Computed example of a mutant assay.
Amino acid sequence: MDSTVAAPRPQLAVIVRIFAAMALATMSALVKLAGEAGVHLSEIVFWRQAITLPIVFVWTLVVADIASLKPVRFSAHLVRALYGITGMALIYSAVTLLPLAEATTLNFTAPIFAVILAMLLLKEKIGKYRWSAVGIGFAGILIVTQPGSADVDPFGVAIGLAGAFMVALVSIQIQDLNRTETAQGIVFWFCLLTLPLTACFLPFFATAHDTTGWFLLLGVGLTGAAGQLLLTASLRFGSAATVIVMDYTALIWATGFGWLFWNDLPGPTLWLGAPLIITAGTIIVMRERYLRLRRASAGT
C-alpha cells in the first residue's frame, strides 16, 4: 500500500490547511523582521532551505522510506528548482518592500496566473467561468495596488506580482512532476538543489548576526518547513478543491502580525480588492474541480 495515501478526512484536512496558512504567514512576518534586522535576502533564502532539508529527510523516513526520494526525472527537478528559488526570492523581496497584508494578498493572484499559463503552455481551453474569474481577479489587483498612487510602492507590487507568477509556473511544473515523483521527493530535491546555488551568494552578502538575527533565521526555517509539511499533509486527507480555499486565512494572520509588529492596518482599498482576488481564486479552484470530475466521469 502507498504510504502517502490516507483515508479521506475532509474536516481534518481543512484544519491542517489552516495551520499551514498560519505557519506560512508567520514565516513571512519573520522574513520581514529579519530583513529589518539587517539579514540579507540571500541568507534568508539559504537558511530557509538549509533548515528545511533535514526536516524533510526525517519526515520522509517517518511517512515513507528513503527509496521514495529517488528521482525519476532529474532534469525536471532542476527546472523546478530554478523556478522555485526565483519565486521564493521574489516573494520574500515583496514581503520586505510592502506591508505584510498587501504582500500576502498579491500572493493570492497565483491561481489567476495559473489559468493564463495553462492556456499558453498546456494549450488548455479556458471557458467563460475561468476567464470571468481572471477579470474579477485583475480588477481586485487594480484596487489593491492603486496604479499611479504613492500609497503603495510600485516596485514592491511588481516584485509581488512577479513572485505570484512564478508560484503559478512552479505549480504547473509540480503538476507535471507529480506524474512520476513523490511529494517528499519533490520537496527534498528542491531544497538540495537550491542549497549550493544560494550558498554561492553567502561570501558576498553574509554578515555577523546577534542572537535575535539567528533566532529569526531559525524561525524562518522552522515555520517554512512546518508550512510545507502541513500543506502536503492536508492533501493526504482531502482534495485540493476542499482545502485550498483555506489558504486565504493567511490574510487574517498577516493583518494581525502587521498590526502587532508594525502598527500597520490595511487601508480600505485592500478590503475592497482582496475579496475580489479571493473570489477569483475560489471560482478557478471550484471550476477546475468540476472539470476534473467531469473528465473522470467521461472516462469511466
Rank of each mutant, 00 (worst) to 15 (best):
D2R: 08
T4V: 06
A7W: 05
A7E: 15
P10E: 00
L12D: 06
A20H: 02
M22E: 06
T26K: 05
T26C: 09
A29T: 10
E36I: 13
V39S: 11
F46E: 01
Q49C: 14
L53R: 02
I55V: 14
V58W: 00
T60C: 14
L61E: 09
S75I: 11
L78G: 15
R80I: 12
R80C: 14
L82F: 15
G87T: 01
P99C: 02
I112R: 01
V115T: 12
V115C: 11
L117M: 04
K123R: 13
Y129A: 11
W131N: 13
A133P: 11
V134Y: 02
V134L: 11
G135Y: 15
G137L: 03
Q146R: 12
P147I: 00
G148V: 13
V157M: 02
L161Y: 11
M166R: 07
Q173S: 15
R179F: 13
A183C: 04
V187T: 06
F188A: 02
L192G: 01
L193R: 04
T194I: 10
F205M: 08
A206I: 10
T211Q: 14
G213I: 05
G221F: 05
L222R: 02
G227T: 05
S234I: 02
L235T: 03
R236A: 09
G238W: 03
G238K: 02
S239D: 13
V243G: 02
V243M: 07
V243T: 09
I244P: 08
V245Q: 01
I252T: 05
A254W: 00
F257P: 01
F257V: 04
W259Q: 01
L265P: 08
L265A: 13
G267F: 03
P268D: 01
L270D: 00
L270I: 13
L272Q: 12
G273K: 04
A274T: 07
A274E: 04
I277Q: 05
A280N: 07
Y290E: 14
R292T: 15
S297P: 00
A298I: 09
A298M: 11
G299A: 12
